[in-house]
Design a binder for these strands. Structure first.
Length: 828
RNA sequence: GCCGGAGUGGCGGAAUCUGGUAGUCGCAGCGGACUUAAAAUCCGCUGGGGCGAAAGCCCCGUGCCGGUUCGAGUCCGGCCUCCGGCACCA
């Protein structure tokens, strides 16, 4: 059999789809809208088949939904700012813009070659001024709402990339991107107050029913809300106090010492001028070094140093010692804790090391405490707690919190692990922060009418290493007049984190050329939330959390009517080779052309979809790709060898006149239609859908090769009916070959303007099934009987079976279980 | 440590939601047809063990242990292993 001419077919249809604007979306058709969004890529260069998975899944789904009758919006764009582009440009000694544009052109060409089709009239590119102008607008909106603020902060500094990193970009004390250990710097930085939306971001996770469980969980853990109380502990003889955050005010009678973070401001006051100053400074320096190196992250030693002051437990009135120890973090709560060694394992270990008193204040109801071997963190009732004895911790929490608030000695407080979002970057390739520093007026926003603040293209973009942005070198960029007073002023020279760019791009697709606003409100309200978002799980926290935050912010401003951006999320698994994630740096990539040249894009697509459930990681196998190519050739072969027969069979078969063999294929066709529609539409199970289509194709082969006496006058109609269903169901996955066959079967319009085939439930099941006959739950016989035989009759058939009669040997069954269309189980 | 996910043939994986024939489909392998030959293609076999000349029959088998049930890969309880996320968060 000849191989089908994939190269010619594929390039011809790719051209045609592009010309005809196959995926061009009519935004006014909102009655049956479907917004199918794939995460837009960094234009970082060549794509390999691992990248391809995201786009192949998305393209197949978009085509499928189109054939289901939806008006599909499937746009694509480029997350074009950012470090990778900039670093690559520096290496190659060309401008990042040039490098980026080259990559965009190349990647667009790749999409084209894969038959991945988008509505390119809606393309957005985040590094172009017509886009980042609105990213700057977004910044100004946040500033106006008091949610963008500037603060001197101890920040994570990557000495190699020479920039500040967000907490999220620091992994194990090192730069997420280059692995260099981070340093600490104190700089004035811009933050977005994402914590103002922490509760909403957390609570609304509950509404995201169609998000993967693990993503929801990861976000929940990341935000990590905890409710507690802040209260003051007076320092004896100092006239000052230290504020502590605790989630367990009910254990306050057991607070036998305080621990401050080494960076706590009170530590400096206590150390300065102390007799032990050299010793203490030495300890602080050591703790700081350990912290920055990551050594102290999970250090179990519980080392600490006594400070020369005592605090007063406000409830017992006792003087309690004060320590500093690195296990207390400055970034969380107040940087100081009341230690309750009896009921917190860390405090317990610390107390054990330094011989501090451990006082039980919660006793378990069953008396089975873990004390004195370990802290007891469970439930119980209060003891050793004065008037509060006998209360449950929950009740004591409420009473104490209320009392502290009434007397002004403390207040209820919710803390989050989530921190505000540091968005300043001291790099060139990003959207300039649209702010101006005026000696007279202070920080002044650039007026909206003056946007965009253009990124100058004539500056040295390599990092300077002094903590300042490359933009600081450009006087033309830097020097401006103050919009408020007209005096000489300077621009902010930092650029924004690229996650800001990608936090709102899905809105811009609705009006990508609109020069008057960031996004058209009415269209966004009609088309969003996104019906299906598809991307990698590596964005489970950062991008998805930021996009949710910005959506909630815009909703709070009345800019949009919805407050979650993505109704459904699908995270596809990684593509691995030799057990490792496919990536250029690991040298295990499969360049798409090595598949497409010899076997075509349809084969690559089919394999990507067939090789496993799309949410799971897969191991690439070159041999299995061949199998997919064979399948497509078989389908082509059916057409080639039977084209006249197919052409003559376009009339619908009449069931009554079919032979047994024909009825079997007819039913198989209806069964397959039902199965594929359910698999793809509800669950993205392309892998099982494809195996169903392979079965159908095998069944067609069986009928066309059946002996003449097994077929009747309607054979060609049955075959046509089956083949037509096969081609239409397969079209979203392998669009080129199906489009070609569709046209050869006599259709003038694109298959993607056709509908998916329909099934009749009457025919989705076989006429007969194998009745399984069990004796005591072991299969002892089978018999082929008609579907829907009534249970009594099934029982009779089973009991009459000779093999069964032999086994029963005249004994009377105790019980007979009959499951219609499945089995009979005879229990003796 | 906490949270999530997964363990099924030589391999990728079906069946798991809703308990009812474990292994769809594909890969690899073996045998056969075609061929001077090979490739390609087509047909057949392919979880393990046992009995039988054969037709066929029997036993075991979904990470481990237990439970529920006529019946468990599927449900429940307790473990083990692997992957991912978070991790001194008071």
């Amino acid at each position: 059999m000849a191989r089908y001419p994939h190269a010619e077919i594929e390039s011809r249809w790719q051209e045609r789809w592009a010309q005809d604007g196959l995926m061009r979306c009519d935004l006014s058709a909102t009655a049956r809208k479907y917004y199918c969004l794939m995460m837009f890529p960094y234009p970082s260069g060549e794509l390999h088949v691992g990248h391809g998975r995201n786009y192949v899944i998305g393209d197949s789904l978009a085509r499928f939904k189109k054939m289901e009758g939806y008006e599909v919006l499937a746009p694509m764009g480029w997350d074009a700012f950012g470090l990778p582009a900039e670093n690559a440009a520096i290496q190659r000694d060309i401008h990042p813009a040039q490098w980026t544009r080259g990559n965009i052109a190349r990647m667009k060409q790749q999409f084209h070659r894969w038959g991945v089709v988008y509505d390119w009239t809606r393309e957005v590119t985040s590094c172009e001024p017509d886009y980042y102008r609105w990213t700057q607008w977004l910044f100004l909106q946040l500033y106006d709402a008091g949610l963008a603020y500037r603060q001197a902060a101890s920040v994570n500094w990557c000495p190699k990339d020479r920039t500040v990193l967000a907490n999220e970009q620091v992994v194990d004390g090192a730069c997420e991107r280059c692995g260099t250990p981070i340093e600490e710097r104190h700089l004035e930085q811009w933050f977005f107050r994402i914590t103002a939306f922490a509760d909403q971001l957390l609570d609304d996770l509950g509404t995201l029913a169609d998000w993967p469980e693990r993503v929801v969980t990861m976000q929940r853990n990341w935000i990590d809300r905890s409710e507690g109380v802040e209260l003051d502990f007076a320092l004896q003889g100092a006239g000052r106090s230290v504020r502590c955050f605790t989630t367990r005010p009910d254990t306050i009678f057991g607070a036998t010492f305080l621990v401050l973070s080494p960076e706590h401001p009170e530590v400096e006051r206590l150390v300065a001028g102390s007799e032990r100053e050299p010793e203490l400074r030495d300890a602080i320096a050591r703790f700081t070094a350990d912290r920055l190196s990551g050594r102290s992250r999970t250090d179990p030693s519980r080392e600490g140093v006594r400070l020369d002051v005592d605090a007063v437990n406000p409830f017992t009135g006792e003087a309690i010692p004060v320590f500093m120890a690195p296990y207390v973090l400055m970034e969380y709560g107040t940087g100081a804790i009341m230690a309750v060694p009896a009921h917190d394992q860390r405090d317990f270990e610390f107390a054990t090391r330094y011989g501090l008193p451990v006082r039980e204040v919660i006793r378990p109801a069953d008396g089975k405490t873990t004390l004195p071997d370990a802290a007891y963190a469970g439930d119980g009732v209060l003891v050793n707690s004065g008037d509060y004895d006998g209360l449950t911790p929950r009740d004591a929490f409420d009473r104490l919190a209320t009392l502290l608030e009434r007397e002004g000695r403390g207040k209820r407080r919710v803390n989050y692990r989530l921190r505000d979002w540091l968005i300043s970057r001291q790099r060139y390739w990003g959207a300039p922060i649209p702010m101006i520093h005026c000696p007279a007026c202070g920080v002044v926003p650039v007026p909206e009418s003056a946007l965009p603040v253009l990124l100058p293209d004539d500056v040295e973009f390599r990092p300077r290493g002094d903590g300042k942005s490359p933009l600081a070198a450009s006087d033309a960029f830097r020097n401006v007049t103050c919009p408020a007073c007209g005096g000489a002023a300077t621009r902010d020279t930092d650029t924004m984190d690229t996650f800001v760019d990608s936090s709102w791009y899905f809105l811009r697709y609705l009006g990508p050329q609109d020069a008057t606003r960031a996004f058209p409100k009415e269209l966004c309200n009609a088309w969003l939330p996104v019906d299906q978002y598809i991307g990698g799980v590596e964005h489970a926290i950062l991008h998805l959390l930021y996009a949710r935050f910005i959506t909630k912010f815009l909703h709070s401003r009345g800019e949009i009517s919805f407050d979650e951006p993505f109704a459904r999320l699908f995270t596809q698994g990684m593509v691995c080779k030799n057990g490792l994630k496919m990536s250029k740096s690991k040298g295990n990539v499969v360049p798409p052309d090595t598949i497409i040249e010899p076997m075509g894009a349809d084969t690559m697509r089919l394999y990507i979809l067939f090789c496993g459930p799309p949410e799971r990681d897969i191991e690439w196998s070159d041999e299995s790709v061949d199998g997919c190519y064979r399948f497509l050739n078989r389908i082509w072969g059916i057409y080639e060898t039977h084209d006249t027969m197919l052409a003559s069979g376009a009339q619908a078969p009449e069931y009554a006149g079919l032979t047994d063999a024909e009825r079997e294929l007819f039913r198989k066709t209806h069964h397959t239609i039902a199965r594929v529609l359910a698999d793809v539409s509800d669950h993205f199970r392309f892998n099982t859908a494809i195996s169903g289509l392979m079965e159908l194709s095998n069944a067609i082969g069986t009928l066309v090769n059946a002996p003449a006496d097994a077929t009747g006058p309607q054979r060609d109609r049955v075959v046509y009916h089956a083949f037509d269903a096969l081609v239409r169901l397969l079209a979203p996955m392998t669009p080129h070959i199906c489009e070609e066959l569709w046209h050869r079967m006599g259709h003038a319009e694109s298959i993607f303007t056709a509908t998916l085939p329909e099934f009749d439930p009457e025919y989705t099941r076989a006429e007969v099934f194998d009745l399984v006959i069990q004796v005591n739950s072991k299969i002892r016989a089978r018999e082929s009987i008609p579907t829907d035989t009534d249970p009594e009759h099934m029982k009779a058939i089973a009991l009459a079976n000779p093999r069964i009669q032999e086994l029963l040997a005249g004994a009377t069954p105790r019980r007979v279980v009959v499951i219609q269309n499945r089995l009979v189980n005879i229990v003796t």
